[in-house]
Design a protein around this nucleic acid. Structure first.
Lengths: 189, 189
DNA sequence: TATCCTTTCCTAGGAACTCTAGGCAAATGG
DNA sequence: CCATTTGCCTAGAGTTCCTAGGAAAGGATA
């Protein structure tokens, strides 16, 4: 019988697409196998188990997200960079809700230190270069930004895909506020 | 045969405890039934399905969290209130990781407007009263704070339970920064 | 007290999913 | 061209979710 031509890469991408359609937590090995016209057992020669599959999707999503953020940062600085960076996150989450959920997947310690995961903090540091924050303020700001982006975006996606003008404006004003904060970061309390 | 004395309340609390032990996503009807010495099918006369059970745990967690936040706010204002409020969130997440994960569970629209869920934004507004923000800045700030708290706390819990002094200080400095931001919220850009 | 009704729990079983074991055939490489 | 590896298969065990139908406990009512 002919082979289906399954590879880990195609599998991971298909799982990511499936996640965008039906939700990351609903991605199963069985459903994925059906999509390839293959029995579920057959996939276990490409993937160790479900967690392995989920981890691969997570790393794919982190990589794509980092690529977008990097593209958003090139040629920009200061508030321009902040807004572009933030919108890259937000747009990605809107376009690819399943992938974004995957990016929030809790990786094991070994995978958490993978390249895709660390790129995000180094890029956030690049973004902050325009604000000239000394350490440890820079590290704090990285955490604050990550916290805000992730928190805000998941609040928004959880609240349905309203995409209202009011939300857009609220988002823009919050970025203004963050810009002000970064320019006036408290040096000593 | 004697009855096990299962009620929805006991079930929900047991599920929440179980979530703290083994993780919210690992709470199953079967495991819960085993804890009560009952077959899994028996639980379906108390609970509609797994989603129903998860929703109940989520509402329990939201209620507990709101209670703590309310207690933290009483008698405080300004930065004092901000710090106490933020620490209530953070401490709850540390003490009850499973319950906290449940609180992040995406509720259906009908349950999302439940009392427990709305208490959080009304309390955040109470917290902001000390900063005298006009609308729509107040709504923006509510979102920013929620985004930051949730994002930061889940970043922290995802990164293992290190509980280092460095993290504590970073947290404290970020709260300083937020306080500064709230006192200097940009009125017009 | 006797009878009815509701609630709680049972057994039985179907459907979906995860994952292993063992086998065969296609692809690859010496 | 043959040996090895790889991809995919069937078979099946174990878990979980959930429904259907029934039995018994506990309370309400006559």
């Amino acid at each position: 019988m002919a082979r289906a031509g399954v590879t880990v890469e195609r599998l991971t991408r298909a799982a990511a697409d499936l996640a965008d359609e039906i939700g990351f937590e609903n991605v199963t090995v069985s459903a994925l196998a059906r999509g390839f016209g293959v029995t579920d057992a057959g996939l276990y020669s490409h993937v160790k188990n479900v967690r392995d599959l989920r981890t691969r999707v997570a790393i794919l999503a982190l990589t794509e997200l980092a690529d977008r953020a990097a593209a958003a940062l090139t040629g920009r600085s200061g508030k321009d960079a902040l807004v572009a960076f933030a919108n890259a996150y937000r747009d990605y989450a809107r376009e690819h809700p399943g992938r974004y959920a995957a990016a929030r997947f809790e990786l094991d310690p070994e995978n958490a230190s993978a390249e895709a995961a660390t790129r995000h903090s180094t890029m956030t540091r690049a973004l902050l270069r325009g604000y000239h924050l000394p350490e440890p303020a820079q590290t704090d700001a990285v955490r604050l930004l990550h916290g805000f982006f992730h928190g805000y975006v998941s609040l928004e996606t959880a609240g349905g895909f309203s995409h209202s003008k009011a939300i857009d404006e609220s988002w823009a004003r919050n970025l203004d506020a963050l810009d002000v904060l970064l320019r006036n970061w408290p040096s000593q309390m």
